[in-house]
């Protein structure tokens, strides 16, 4: 299996002087499903941001599907991002109806109307939001907004899915459901990387677990559980 994500000795320093990630070496193969765990503030989101070029590394190299991410020209960034679906920790929904939120990415990447008309209701009903298709984010609960962010990614069917605490605002049943949707996307071929500090979902699934502590990878197990000794900060 070729590598989908590859980090080589990556260090990220924010302008404030905080070193969010130190000397990260990490390879995730195509088709893998992995958890990125660790207490709040220990660098999970930062690692994901490197992969869709929201942050740049101070040192080291970052590859996604063979592209060296920090070196992609500004005009090519959009093409990288079409291949990387992100469920953002802050949702980042457009101020539009649920339907339009999901449809936007499809339209923007030139999908035909027939395809959009098929995929949008599919994705919305999968996360249980079809009856709220005409709601604006402001009229949705935090959990519903999170589900909508997941639907937006699922509809695009990207080869790489990054989910940043996608169950942070959901009850256990909804959390399990969202994780099932991500697993299905994985079965259908997508590489999936989920950042979380929720032991329940990590322990239930027994997948690869990468542990971040103070910006360093301290543990990486193929079928791990949530490490007991990590405080939830």
């Amino acid at each position: 299996m070729p590598a989908c994500v590859e980090l080589k000795d990556v260090t990220v320093v924010y302008p404030s002087g905080v070193t969010a990630l130190s000397n990260i070496d990490l390879t995730i193969d195509e088709g893998e499903f992995a958890f990125l765990v660790g207490p709040t503030g220990h660098g999970k989101s930062t690692l994901l941001k490197l992969l869709y070029r929201e942050e740049l590394p101070a040192r080291g190299r970052v590859f996604v599907s063979g592209w060296e991410v920090p070196r992609i020209s500004a005009s090519r960034v959009a093409h990288l991002r079409r291949r990387v679906g992100v469920v953002f920790q802050e949702f980042r929904l457009l101020p539009r109806t649920a339907w339009e939120s999901v449809a936007f990415g499809l339209h923007a990447t030139g999908r035909s109307y027939r395809e959009v008309l098929r995929r949008v209701p599919d994705a919305l009903s999968e996360v249980g939001l079809l009856d709220k298709a005409d709601h604006h984010p402001s009229a949705l609960s935090a959990g519903e907004q999170q589900s909508l962010a997941v639907a937006r990614v699922l509809a695009m069917r990207p080869p790489l899915i990054l989910a940043d605490e996608p169950t942070g605002n959901l009850d256990p049943a909804s959390s399990r459901h969202i994780m099932q949707l991500l697993e299905r996307a994985n079965r259908e071929g997508a590489t999936v990387l989920v950042a979380t500090h929720d032991p329940a979902i990590v322990n239930a699934m027994r997948r690869r677990v990468i542990v971040l502590h103070h910006g360093r990878i301290v543990q990486d197990e193929p079928e791990g559980g949530y490490p007991d000794d990590l405080g939830r900060a």
């Binding site: 960034v77 959009a78 093409h79 991002r81 980042r92 990415g105 923007a108 990447t109 937006r152």
Partner: peptide, 8 residues
């Protein structure tokens, strides 16, 4: 956000 979801 539009840029993040891949619009040129």
């Amino acid at each position: 956000i539009m840029q993040l979801v891949g619009a040129t």
